[in-house]
Design a protein around this nucleic acid. Structure first.
Length: 931
RNA sequence: GGUUCCUUAGCUCAGUUGGCUAGAGCGUACGAUUCACAUUCGUAAGGUCAUUGGUUCGAGCCCAAUAGGAACCACCA
């Protein structure tokens, strides 16, 4: 294939990806056969946090995939049987919101359909939308095993979830509880605490008359649900009232409440008196539990006032608040209003509606045991965290974890496999009345649910149970969730209509993806690493650890790498409303997949929220093009050498050996088919080997910022700028080939497409680059490599001085002269070429011009005497500068503690430095004298 | 209110167990150019590493305090 003048990613990416995928290179088993000889043999497993199956990727996905795929490709090159497992999320609530909106647009409502109908409809809806996400993951180059893609509603996921749920149910860790839950009136579902979005808002704080007290509240409309008034037990102002029942004037007439004492009350806030509304406030609920208070529901599931609000019944909460305040004002019950009070109001994280705490029966997981076990494994350091600080944060979270509400009232999800005994089997009057009572209670249309009425309900149920199936349990576990009703042992049960919280199934992701089976050996579980966003440490990582430990007895992954948020170019959070959202796929289209990956990884470190701008993608694109042109140039040299060169035979032999290497049959450390013939070649072998080894360390420690910077610098600043330049003078075709292959391999994890595109365009390579072996160390002569360092120093100094003279000399070009200097004598042509000077010659014992300030080398720039004289000042300045450095070193040596305590190597280095600087100064002085 | 993190060049960020002259990309200035690459090459300018104190032979890094910023958790009615 011919190399075009610049690299065009769009010409290669789709085709290369297809070939990778079709070759089976993404599948772990295929790789294992080819790389069985590598010393780092073993398996490597990593899962992709499943993106929304019917959504589009955002910048965070771009970062996740760039990180994960770099890891996967690196370990694959290292010879590990690598399994990068992709996933797709049914995204329960997100998808449901989108679907419900679509339904509403068509003029329908969810209440027109049964749950099964809705489930089927959403399934079709998702099916239609699906595929975009997967195409985008491909565009980013993810080397994941597509045939193993797991969708969060797949059969194996559901069966694992049911298995776990059943075990927990049998272990008594699951209970049905009536508790206050966060409830979105718009979406009619409960939320976990972590799904609630608190926003700071101004809310007037009303000081109202309340019997003998004045108290402050932001929610006067809940007054109808007040069943007590509380003060702090230590508050002397109100001691006399504690335990007494007071009469309170209300907008619907007077009512009586008890005065209680509870530690929860902050004496400093407001007047130190709090009205207690157990049905609509979490704190009040807890107070109510402690003091056995009645629970009166005044807000229903649609966010409207219930019958308990009397003439305000049916009003939406906001409206009712205004109406109640107005009525209170008229009755003179409002003492004052603090309009500037700011509080945090809970909102639905999706639709923004105000969340109402609501009394609901839900399924809960008792998390005590789960959390305790998880903490034990964390304390034993079984999981390594990047950044390490997150481990402590996680343990702290687990210590304070509250019971986990796993029920959601949306149809799009995994049905909860629980069935409730029903008395509907017969047509008896008592059972239908129970049903009515039950359904009324479930939907909370009853004005109040006091302990009294609950007890009545219990009594009635017991009565029915005795009649119909006295010994049958109220709830049974059964996986036949496709049926709305089942019969077990002659007793009828109806399905619970709720679905699982997404995190309940996601928490089992590592087991599900790796096909974990109890008692069976599994090389891929635990995962080697869990890579995800730091923002879901609690929601996901914590739960995976708890559930993994519970089910398998071991942690689900060995390491956790958490990435931070990708912020916009100015460090601001990206959001649709700000309009600063960056679409990763647009960048891929514009600059190529590799450019995007290099750009987003540049300067990225664990756990940090970091800014991202298109500039870094441009830099990535430039690197790809640079590498392309390096390859084009080398291919050109290879082609040239083939046509009629005298060394054709020699090269052909070397190539035969090279091919053997390419087939991956040579063990690491075996002879590579090259020899180094000059110091530039030894030098590049040293530099590439060092780079490769540092990269290995970077990967082991997830230092992506440094890895990208290092490999870029090695390819550009060392390989291209010095080695390739030097090869314009001395061509070593076998070494050019070996080293080019090496840089392709070390860049491949980050920039898979361009490296693969080059690999296939080169005349001597074959197969897929992604299936090659990570390069071994290169052999080199260290003394020779060091000589090249010296030569570089001479060239850099020559360039610097030439540049300084460039304005004055107006385009005049000067040659170089050298004295007693073997290095320069032997490499004159190379020095002249690198320094871009027209000539270089021995000064024949007659030094003239401007001597370059390089230690141990005698090289002159052949400039006229007047230029030298002009340069006198520069020389003097330089003597002073070196003198300052020398003083600093000397000062260090005069400190006896330094000589005693610092490592000997360091002290020796200082001594050498002093010697070198002294010599330099002496020489510069001499030069000054000559002038 | 609690926890964690951040403060390094004009901008965005690296900087490993403390070690000599603190790096990169972009930007800026000057220069180059048929001969792989203008998506190029060369050179340079730009930093009291937030502040103050401490530990140490030695601190951007460790400790303490202060100032500013961010994220997460909790939710004061």
């Amino acid at each position: 294939m011919k190399f075009t003048k610049s690299y065009g990613p769009e010409e290669f990416e789709p085709q290369i990806y297809r070939e990778w995928e079709e070759s089976g290179a993404f599948l772990p088993k295929k790789q294992a056969i080819q790389s069985c000889e590598d010393e780092t043999d073993g398996s490597y497993s990593i899962v992709m946090p499943p993106p929304n199956a019917n959504g589009n990727l955002h910048i965070g996905h771009g970062l996740t995939i760039a990180i994960e795929d770099s890891l996967a490709r690196y370990y694959r090159l290292r010879g590990r049987s690598t399994w990068y497992i992709p996933g797709a999320d049914h995204a329960g609530f997100e998808t449901w919101v989108v679907y419900e909106r679509a339904l509403e647009k068509e003029g329908h409502s969810r209440f027109e359909y049964s749950r099964d109908e809705l489930y089927a409809r959403v399934w079709d809806f998702v099916e239609q939308q699906r595929g975009n996400m997967e195409l985008q993951v491909r565009a980013l180059g993810a080397s994941c095993a597509w045939t193993d893609l797991t969708f969060t509603l797949d059969e194996n996921v559901v069966s694992r979830v049911y298995q776990t749920f059943e075990r927990m149910w049998n272990d008594g860790m699951i209970y049905r509880g009536e508790k206050l839950v966060n409830f979105c009136p718009k979406h009619q579902t409960a939320f976990a605490d972590i799904e609630v979005d608190y926003r700071e808002e101004k809310a007037p704080l009303y000081y109202i008359k309340y019997g003998p007290f004045t108290l402050a509240t932001t929610r006067p409309e809940t007054k109808f649900g007040d069943t007590a008034v509380a003060v702090n037990p230590n508050d002397e102002r109100y001691q006399e009232w504690v335990g007494k029942t007071i009469t309170v004037e209300g907008v619907n007439g007077p009512f009586e409440v008890e005065v209680i004492a509870d530690e929860m009350v902050d004496m400093e806030f407001g007047t130190g008196v709090v009205k207690i509304t157990p049905a609509h406030d979490f704190n009040d609920w807890e107070v109510g539990q402690r003091h056995n208070l009645r629970v009166v529901q005044v807000i229903d599931e649609e966010g409207k006032m219930t019958e308990a609000a009397g003439r305000f019944a049916g009003m939406p909460v906001q409206e009712a608040r205004k109406a109640v305040v107005k009525a209170m004002k008229e009755m003179g019950m409002i003492v004052k209003i603090d309009e500037n009070y700011v509080t945090k109001v809970p909102h639905c994280y999706k639709c923004g509606a105000v969340i109402e705490p609501m009394l609901k029966e839900q399924w809960f997981i008792d998390v005590k045991r789960l959390a305790r076990e998880a903490i034990k494994h964390l304390d034993d350091n079984e999981i390594k965290f990047y950044p390490s600080s997150k481990k402590r944060v996680l343990i702290e979270y687990l210590k304070n974890l509250k019971d986990w509400n796993i029920s959601r009232q949306i149809p799009w999800g995994i049905p909860i496999p629980m069935f409730r005994k029903t008395a509907l089997a017969s047509s008896s009057a008592s059972s239908s009345s129970l049903d009515a009572l039950l359904s009324r209670r479930m939907s909370n249309t009853s004005p109040s649910a006091t302990p009294d009425s609950l007890n009545k309900l219990e009594d009635q149920r017991r009565f029915c149970e005795q009649e119909h199936a006295p010994d049958a349990p109220e709830w049974i576990f059964d996986t036949r969730t496709n049926l709305p009703e089942i019969e077990v042992g002659g007793v009828k049960y109806v399905r619970d209509e709720d679905t699982f919280d997404t995190w309940f199934s996601s928490s089992q992701w590592p087991m599900v993806c790796t096909d974990y089976l109890e008692g069976r050996e599994n090389a891929y579980y635990p995962l080697n690493v869990m890579e995800t966003g730091a923002d879901i440490l609690f929601a996901w990582v914590a739960r995976m650890i708890m559930m993994g430990v519970y089910t398998t007895g071991e942690v689900p992954f060995r390491e956790v790498y958490l990435h931070g948020l990708v912020l916009d170019a100015h460090g601001k959070k990206m959001s649709k409303s700000k309009g600063n959202v960056v679409n990763p796929i647009e960048l891929v289209t514009k600059y190529g997949s590799d450019a995007f990956r290099l750009g987003i990884l540049r300067g990225r470190s664990a756990g940090m929220n970091q800014a991202f701008s298109e500039n870094s993608v441009v830099a990535g694109r430039n690197l790809c093009n640079k590498l392309w042109n390096i390859s084009r140039f080398i291919q050109g040299m290879v082609d040239e050498s083939k046509s009629g060169s005298v060394e054709a035979m020699e090269i052909a032999q070397a190539e035969m050996k090279a091919e053997i290497v390419n087939e991956g049959q040579v063990r690491a450390g075996a002879e590579l088919p090259y020899s180094t013939d000059n110091m530039g070649e030894d030098w590049i072998c040293r530099q590439l080997t060092a780079c490769k080894e540092k990269l290995e360390d970077d990967f082991a420690n997830y230092r992506f910022a440094e890895a990208v910077e290092r490999v870029t610098a090695t390819i550009w600043d060392e390989y291209a700028d010095w080695f390739i330049e030097s090869q314009k003078i001395y061509k070593n075709i076998p070494l050019l080939k070996v080293t080019l292959e090496m840089i392709l391999k070390i860049l491949h994890p980050f920039a898979p497409f361009v490296t693969e595109a080059i690999w296939r365009s080169l005349s001597w390579t074959d197969g897929l680059l992604m299936m090659q072996k990570w390069p071994p160390r290169l052999k080199f002569d260290p003394i020779s490599a060091e000589n090249f360092d010296n030569l570089v120093a001479v060239v850099v100094e020559a360039r610097r001085v030439l540049n300084e003279l460039s304005v004055a000399s107006k385009g005049k070009r000067y040659g170089l002269l050298y004295g007693d200097d073997a290095l320069v004598d032997d490499n004159g042509l190379l020095v002249a070429s690198l320094a871009k000077v027209p000539s270089i010659a021995s000064c024949e014992g007659q030094p003239k011009g401007l001597r370059l300030a390089v230690a141990n080398h005698e090289v002159y720039l052949d400039v006229p005497q007047e230029v030298v004289t002009k340069h006198r000042e520069v020389l003097e300045e330089r003597i002073l500068a070196v003198g300052r450095e020398l003083d600093a070193l000397n000062l260090r040596m005069t400190n006896p503690n330094y000589v005693d305590k610092a490592p000997a190597k360091l002290v020796q280095q200082t001594r050498d430095g002093i010697k070198e600087k002294e010599e330099l100064i002496a020489r510069l002085r001499k030069e000054l004298e000559v002038i």
